[in-house]
Design a binder for these strands. Structure first.
Lengths: 118, 118
DNA sequence: TGCAATGCCTTGAACTTCGAGGTATGATGA
DNA sequence: TCATCATACCTCGAAGTTCAAGGCATTGCA
């Protein structure tokens, strides 16, 4: 029950969702994804490299993304992009996420006792 | 990467949030909580007893809820209710959840490529 | 030369959920 | 009477994640 240092424990499966979404928009490499998530969420969500790389490898193993090596200014980068299977997977995850948040929202706001809304 | 049978892998920390919310509305016992979550979310979320009981014990150990034993029609029930500390904890979790979902929503909908919204 | 940033990766610990099982009582029905 | 189901508590091992830290190598800057 120890408090997490960074993200408050609601992160299960979320990195995979965000990574697929980013890659659907444009080809990216691991290190870039780490920073993109941090910046686009205004640091609300911060996933480390230790999370991103295993997820990328898992997605590639499942055929949801594919990679190609590219050398830019002497630096070797591995760019990932979504496959049709990955796109389908993103759609599924996205729908699951929407359903889940809707259900939770209903429980959080829908009180059975009257709520003062002035 | 195997697909979950019931809930789609976004469940980290969610049971604790829902349980605290339910208990804030009214005193409840474990078995009742299991069914309340299932019914109030229209079975979108289904947490088993193996999840609920450990969470309740952890919350009690941390002083977020307190329990009292009550016997109803020969059946012994342990009713839980939130303490002030638990109420504070619920507020924190609730805020974290709101921030997280807002950030993700922004990433899911905010595309950098134009989206057809007719 | 030294140091920071870039870019890839792995590891072990810690946590959580999941699913199945165990115990015991009351109500139902054949 | 006896079997079965719903109630009500609980525990356990397996599986999957995230987290933090570190290792390796290159480039750019002071």
């Amino acid at each position: 029950m120890a408090a997490r240092e960074t993200n408050p424990n609601f992160m299960n499966g979320v990195p995979e969702l965000l990574i697929l979404r980013l890659l659907q928009q444009s080809e990216m490499y691991g290190y870039e994804i780490v920073q993109a998530i941090r910046s686009r969420t205004d640091a609300v969500i911060a996933v480390g490299e230790g999370v991103v790389y295993p997820v990328l490898h898992g997605l590639e193993r499942d055929g949801a993304v594919k990679s190609r090596r590219k050398t830019v200014k002497g630096r070797s980068r591995i760019y990932y992009s979504v496959t049709p299977a990955g796109s389908h997977r993103l759609a599924d995850l996205s729908e699951s996420w929407t359903n889940l948040t809707a259900a939770i929202q209903k429980m959080l706001t829908g009180g059975q006792r009257d709520q003062a809304i002035p």
